[in-house]
């Protein structure tokens, strides 16, 4: 083997190692981080439209991922849950501004709640026409779907509801009530809807999770409970 062969093969080997490192280590992380950043754009847009949603996504994300881990979700399923958490409410841009911004939700009529709940379907429609996000559409569509398939305007059979959607329903309900009525009433709401609105196993796991010391501390720190 000549000197030039050794030099060329040596340079090529080093470059290949560098290229492999860049392609299989650096690039995937870069893609992941850009994906997360771009998802934050959507949740920020919703939070700026409806400031009473500010901070909800971060809280839902923290609790939802923890519950997802307890429910035994795979890393891919957890990633879908994380993305769906950011994108679940993009349909709120089509919900009348004055309903959410100017009318206290405790005064909402049944019709107002129905109008509001349509944001899940609108969000799902928007995701369906975005190729890299369309797989999240079923999760987002069902994130307010009742577990028993009886309540509400959109009520699929519980088996048709993806587990990430069931997790989101439990966690978003808790976080919303926790912010507005406090932790105890938020827990009562989950217990009340256990088996009808919410997956009973997830409710049990979630309540157990909230009782654990670490989460209680985090909840008090993050939630701003009144």
């Amino acid at each position: 083997m000549s000197i030039s062969t050794i030099v060329v093969i040596g340079c090529l080997s080093l470059s290949t190692i560098g290229l492999l490192f860049y392609v299989y280590w650096v690039l995937p992380r870069q893609i992941e981080s850009r994906l997360r950043e771009s998802l934050r754009v959507f949740s920020t847009a919703v939070e700026l439209r409806f400031p009473n949603h500010t901070g909800l996504t971060d809280r839902v994300l923290a609790l939802g991922l923890r519950l997802g881990q307890l429910a035994g979700l795979s890393p891919t399923e957890l990633r879908d849950l994380e993305m769906a958490t950011h994108l679940r409410d993009i349909g709120l841009c089509a919900i009348p501004y004055r309903l959410v911004k100017e009318k206290p939700w405790l005064q909402w009529t049944h019709s107002d709640f129905e109008t509001y709940d349509r944001h899940a379907e609108i969000s799902a429609h928007m995701l369906e026409i975005t190729p890299s996000l369309h797989k999240l559409a079923p999760i987002v569509r069902c994130h307010h779907a009742p577990y028993d398939g009886k309540t509400g305007w959109f009520a699929p059979n519980s088996r048709a509801i993806p587990i990430q959607a069931r997790i989101l329903y439990v966690v978003t309900t808790y976080v919303w009530f926790e912010r507005n009525l406090g932790d105890l009433l938020a827990r009562d709401r989950l217990v009340e809807g256990r088996g009808s609105l919410f997956d009973p196993e997830l409710v049990d796991a979630f309540l157990r999770m909230l009782t654990s010391k670490g989460v209680r501390d985090a909840s008090e720190h993050l939630a701003g409970v009144p």
Partner: peptide, 18 residues
């Protein structure tokens, strides 16, 4: 790049909804 353009598309759709 594809994801970037899809984000732009999705944001445009949000904008058109309002």
């Amino acid at each position: 790049y594809e994801h970037y353009y899809e984000t732009v598309t999705a944001l445009t759709l949000m904008m058109q909804r309002t």
